[in-house]
Computed example of a mutant assay.
Amino acid sequence: MSKALKSLLIMMVSLAVPTLVLGVISLVSGGALAADVAVVISVVFGLGYGLEAGLLRSYDLSRGVGWLELLVDLTWSLPNTVFGFLIGNATYIWFGTLSRARSEDKGWIVYMPRPGSSFGRDVLQTLGTVNIGGEGQHEKMHLLQARIFGPLYLPFVGASYVITFILQVLWTITLGGLLKLLGVRQKAYFQPPAHSAVGGFFGWIYYATPIELWAYASGNP
């Protein structure tokens, strides 16, 4: 398959499939999502995502797995893809530049950090199918998690952070604080292990979420 054809197919599928998905949602919901609103959302997203992923040739459509990744990202995992497209691009553009070399045939969109930027170099991140920093640490695992859990992924991640934040705060202001005053602990709060990408008080909140425990335990590079 030629590169031009691959780009064109990614653009066409990215426009057609979300339109179909949101149209079905509008129909099934009895108009809770207005048909005209569904069309506008799907067209705007489809054109934007299709152009970006298509020009970067993010999906290897010469292989079945590439088609599967694209279709999953535009159906079951569509909320994650939309979230990553909007928030990821709006954030990462300030710290990096799009990389075709790191995106092509890899099933995602990658920004590489600009010189002097630690974000994307020391700390990597993946939102939906949009990443900064490439495949280091375990970023591909987060992409897989989003594809597995689909529309449940973002609520699950949000709830996980709320729970670990509450646990961290409660421990710090109660037993952890007491043990710190007695000299038993150096820090009142839970600390993440040294290999955590984020340290300190918020580092444990990040590290102790199920998606991060899974990703670190996977050893996925």
Rank of each mutant, 00 (worst) to 15 (best):
P210Y: 01
S29V: 14
Q191N: 04
F119W: 10
A90C: 06
S218D: 02
A194S: 13
M112D: 13
R185H: 06
H195D: 14
A208D: 06
Q186E: 13
G120I: 11
S160G: 14
F95V: 05
L55E: 07
L8E: 09
V72P: 00
S160H: 02
P155G: 09
L71F: 13
V65T: 02
K187G: 02
G158H: 09
D105C: 02
T19K: 00
A215S: 15
T164F: 01
L8P: 03
V43L: 15
I173E: 14
L55I: 11
I163A: 15
A194H: 10
Q145L: 13
A215V: 11
T19V: 10
V110F: 03
R185Y: 12
F149D: 00
G46C: 10
R121T: 13
V130K: 08
G176S: 06
R147H: 07
F190C: 04
E69W: 14
G31Q: 09
L182H: 06
F165V: 09
F190Q: 03
G64K: 00
W171N: 01
P18G: 11
S77Y: 00
T126W: 01
L213C: 11
I211V: 12
S2I: 03
S77R: 07
I41G: 03
K6D: 10
V37N: 12
W214C: 10
S62G: 10
V17N: 03
L56W: 15
L47F: 12
F156Q: 07
L33S: 10
I148W: 04
G64R: 01
P210W: 04
W76P: 03
L178G: 06
Y216G: 01
L15V: 15
V184I: 14
Y59I: 08
F190G: 02
Y206T: 12
Q145R: 05
T81A: 03
V43K: 15
E139P: 08
N220F: 07
G30H: 07
V43Y: 10
G203F: 00
N80W: 00
A217Y: 13
G116Y: 11
P151K: 06
L15D: 09
P79S: 06
P193Q: 05
K180P: 02
A217S: 14
P221R: 08
L182F: 11
T91G: 01
P210D: 07
W204T: 00
I109W: 15
Y92R: 03
G30N: 12
R100I: 12
I93E: 05
A194E: 15
R100Y: 02
G30D: 15
Y49F: 15
Y49C: 05
G84C: 05
G48H: 09
G107Y: 03
L9T: 12
G134L: 08
G219R: 14
G150R: 01
L170A: 15
E212P: 06
S118A: 13
V130S: 09
S196Y: 00
T81D: 02
L78D: 06
V24T: 08
Q191Y: 01
G134C: 08
I211T: 12
G30Q: 12
P151G: 08
I166M: 11
L124H: 07
H195I: 08
T126H: 12
I166Y: 05
V110G: 02
G66T: 06
L27T: 13
Q186G: 13
G23Q: 10
L61T: 09
M12D: 00
I87M: 05
